[in-house]
Nucleic acid binder design. Sequence first.
DNA 1: CCTACATTAAACCTTTTAGTTGAATATATG
DNA 2: CATATATTCAACTAAAAGGTTTAATGTAGG
Lengths: 119, 119
Amino acid sequence: MQPQTLDHVMLALADPTRRAILDRLQREGEARVTDLAAPFAVSLNAVSKHIRLLERASLVRRRRSGREHFLSFNPAPLDEAAAWIEEKRAFWTKRLDALERALVEDDAAKQRLRKGRKR
Amino acid sequence: MQPQTLDHVMLALADPTRRAILDRLQREGEARVTDLAAPFAVSLNAVSKHIRLLERASLVRRRRSGREHFLSFNPAPLDEAAAWIEEKRAFWTKRLDALERALVEDDAAKQRLRKGRKR
DNA sequence: CCTACATTAAACCTTTTAGTTGAATATATG
DNA sequence: CATATATTCAACTAAAAGGTTTAATGTAGG
């Protein structure tokens, strides 16, 4: 994957219209440009441009059939994005786990102390 | 979380300098603006602006101590981003699993046919 | 007090995003 | 063929991103 691809994927996801387009393609499969544009308050041309950004990120594929263009969702580029984010989250989870272990250990030590005092 | 926050988080991640800054803060903990800027070929002011975008997305926190500002990584906003992406990926995995099951079932049916013919 | 340091603010430039409207292109259909 | 439909292209505007340089602000240290 080219180095700027992750940039393109993240940027493509940084807009509610484009995320909604991907949502729909995921739920309903192939759709035409006109169909995709219908729910939005912007022009068909604006949606056409959004689709171009999604294509640049390889998040949608285009199949031409006569005058109609059928777009479909391609989730493959999400792998790298997910990997990047999860690596950051995994680290945090590890830190939280370590904190929890420390607290549990501390608690156990206090318990031992209490028991020791009782006897 | 406000509706535009996911936009800000995704946009913040759509730049290699900002991702590198988050990487470093994750690995090494707190750092000053000057320290963060050092590895990059751009001006200190450019990095200061990148940090502002990261703060807008709540991905970094700022602690002032005299004339120094210490930045730290806040992974919390990544949750929503990861959730969005994973929901899209989970769907795809499910589809692949379904496809695999269908192929295995088809194969099993062929096996049954072959065995039936032999006997 | 003076000077150096850490950082932001302000002004400016260029490129990209995001949108519009109007024309062009290609394909269906009566 | 004539007309309607589906889509992009081109030109334009406005705003945001990403960068620079030159102040301005605040703090630390002799």
